[in-house]
Simulated assay, not measured.
Amino acid sequence: ELLNEPIIVQIDQSYYLLDVHELNIAHWQIRGIETQVRYERTQAQMIQSDKMANLGRLVDGVAHEILDPVSFIWGNLSHIASYSQELLELLTAYEQALPNPPSDLVQLREAIELDYLRQDLPRAIDSVKTGAERLSKLATSLQNFCHIDEVYPKPTNLHESIDSILLLLKSRLTSDIAVIKQYGNLPPIMCYPGQLNQVFMNILSTCLDSLLIQAVSQQLDLDLKTRRNQIEPAATTPIKPTIAITTQVCSLPEPSGVSNRWISIQISDNGPGLSREAQRQLLESFSVQRRTEKETSLAVSYQIVTAKHGGRFRVRSRSAANNELRRVACGGDSEETTPLEVDASLTGTEFEILLPLL
């Protein structure tokens, strides 16, 4: 009824009459701008997705080209090892048959250092074998990570997927970071392996970033205290950065009273943990509105686990700052806070992925 009535606005003791027709025009212009922004954002996401798909195909092709010569090397190494062993045995037989060889042969034997050659040749062949095997595993891991999933899920060995991601991250896994793997007896699970590889990569990268920052901070703090003569250099032993990976089959009760079987993959670190603000931002990033504004790696992982695989994605964090164990349970669960029942100096973050076992 009041749609066409005049609208009066007061600004600093002054009154202005607004034209309803112009307001409607401004409203639809704003709606048009919002639609255009959403369209451009969608187009940018499509272009980025297409770039990543093309990059994945490129890396997959490069890995395939690497595997071809590696297979030639690997296939011929066994023959080279056997041939060299037979030649060394023949040379030994000649030495036994000719105990007093001519002087030129003696000089040649000393020039090539025959005794050293006999010891070093098997080691050199074993070294080439190790390098070819590592290169083959690395190329295979690249292929698995960049593989574009089919329309339907397929049975996958999750332990092999996690190991391949750890191999890709080996350059960041320094000797200061320990990786503890406690694998249970898991059956092959129906899933999209390429997408789960992305989830494992995102979680492990997050753990590594946290541990590396903590290691640098501990080292700087230790150096500062040592220079100030506050502590002895050998008096303090910093906590060794550790990533623990645990897999198992578990049963979880449902609201209906029926217990279903799930595959549990837990990836935890002993880093500084997440603060309350970081946990709040993490929860907000899992919402649909936040994902459209800015997709983070953990938000993408949450979407892959919950929407694509029908699973659950949980984050538990223990921070010494607030002295409590806080569980951010995602995928239909609620947030819980429980008192810290362990040493307050023990901190860390644990990511748990629950996949239904069909």
Rank of each mutant, 00 (worst) to 15 (best):
W74I: 06
Y192N: 08
L211G: 01
N260V: 04
L298R: 05
G131S: 15
T35P: 00
P233E: 07
R327T: 14
E95Q: 14
D149L: 05
P188V: 11
E5I: 03
G271M: 08
Q266W: 01
W262Y: 15
I148R: 10
A178F: 08
T140R: 07
S171E: 11
I265C: 01
L282E: 03
Q281P: 01
E352G: 05
L354P: 08
E86C: 04
P339A: 09
R326M: 14
R261G: 09
T292F: 04
D120N: 03
T347Y: 01
T174H: 10
S217D: 13
I165R: 08
I165D: 00
K240P: 07
Q198A: 08
K308R: 14
I203E: 02
L168I: 06
L135D: 03
G194R: 08
D120E: 04
R31V: 04
A321Y: 15
F200N: 10
R109C: 01
D12Y: 02
L298C: 09
A124K: 15
L204M: 09
Q45M: 12
F351C: 05
A178W: 03
T242M: 06
L138E: 06
L211T: 06
T338G: 07
S127C: 10
R123S: 11
G332E: 08
L158K: 09
L18P: 05
Q143K: 12
Q248I: 01
M190L: 11
S334F: 12
L340V: 13
A307E: 14
Y16F: 04
C146P: 01
P253E: 11
I203L: 05
A93C: 15
Q119C: 03
E254L: 12
L117I: 07
P99C: 01
L173G: 02
S164M: 06
I80D: 09
L17R: 11
G311F: 00
W28T: 04
A299F: 02
I33K: 10
E232T: 10
G273N: 02
I213K: 06
I239F: 00
R38G: 09
W74E: 15
S78A: 15
L212P: 00
L283E: 15
E254V: 13
E335L: 15
L23E: 05
G194H: 09
S317I: 12
S297A: 09
G310W: 06
T35L: 11
S264V: 04
D163S: 09
L283D: 15
I8N: 07
T206G: 05
T237D: 14
S264Y: 00
V315R: 07
L167K: 12
P272T: 12
D333M: 07
T156W: 13
F351Y: 14
S84N: 11
E335M: 05
S103A: 13
A53N: 13
L166C: 02
Q43D: 07
A321W: 02
T237A: 11
